[in-house]
Simulated assay, not measured.
Amino acid sequence: MPTDIAPLSQILGALEAAGEPTRLRLLALLAEAEITVSELVAILGQSQPRISRHLKLLAEAGLIDRHREGAWAFFHLAQSGAVAALARDILRRIDPSDPQFVSDRARLAEARRTRAEQAARYFAEQADNWNRIRSLHVPEEQLEAAIRDIVGKQEIRSVLDLGTGTGRMLELLAPRAERAVGVDLSTAMLAVARAGIDKAGLRNVQLRQGDIYALPVERDSYDLVLVHLVLHYLDDPLRALREAARTMRPGGRLIVVDFAPHSLEFLRTDHAHRRLGFSREEIEQMMRDVGLENVSYRSLTPRTRDPEKLTVSLWVARDPRIISDLVPATVSIA
Rank of each mutant, 00 (worst) to 15 (best):
L86K: 01
S97Q: 09
R107H: 10
E60F: 03
I94F: 07
A87R: 04
A78L: 07
D98L: 06
L77E: 00
G70C: 00
A109S: 13
E117S: 09
S103A: 15
I90Y: 11
S103C: 13
R68K: 14
R66K: 14
A111M: 10
H76L: 03
A85W: 04
D89Y: 10
V83A: 08
D65M: 10
L63E: 03
D104W: 05
L77I: 00
R88Q: 15
A59P: 00
L86W: 04
R121I: 02
I94T: 09
R113N: 12
I94H: 09
A78K: 05
L91V: 10
D65R: 11
A78W: 05
T114M: 08
D95Q: 02
R68V: 11
Q118A: 15
R113D: 13
E69V: 15
F101P: 06
I94D: 10
A85M: 08
H76N: 05
F101Q: 12
L91P: 13
T114Y: 08
A82L: 04
F101A: 12
V102S: 07
Q79E: 15
F74S: 10
L63H: 02
P99F: 08
L77V: 00
G81Y: 02
L86F: 03
A78E: 08
D104N: 10
A111N: 08
R112F: 01
R66N: 02
V102D: 09
E110C: 04
A84I: 06
V83G: 11
E110R: 12
W72M: 13
A106P: 07
I90S: 12
G70E: 01
R68T: 14
E60K: 04
R88I: 03
P96A: 01
S80W: 07
R92A: 10
L91I: 08
R105L: 10
I64G: 00
A116F: 05
A84L: 10
S97Y: 06
A73F: 06
H76D: 03
I90T: 11
R66Y: 02
A71I: 11
I94M: 12
F74G: 04
R121T: 05
D95S: 04
A87E: 02
W72C: 14
A111Q: 14
D104Q: 04
P96K: 01
F75N: 01
E69P: 14
V102E: 09
A78Q: 08
I64C: 00
D98C: 04
F74H: 13
I64K: 00
A119Y: 02
R93Q: 15
A119Q: 14
D65I: 07
W72F: 13
A61S: 11
A120H: 07
A109C: 09
V102H: 07
F75W: 12
S97I: 06
R112C: 01
D65P: 03
P96T: 02
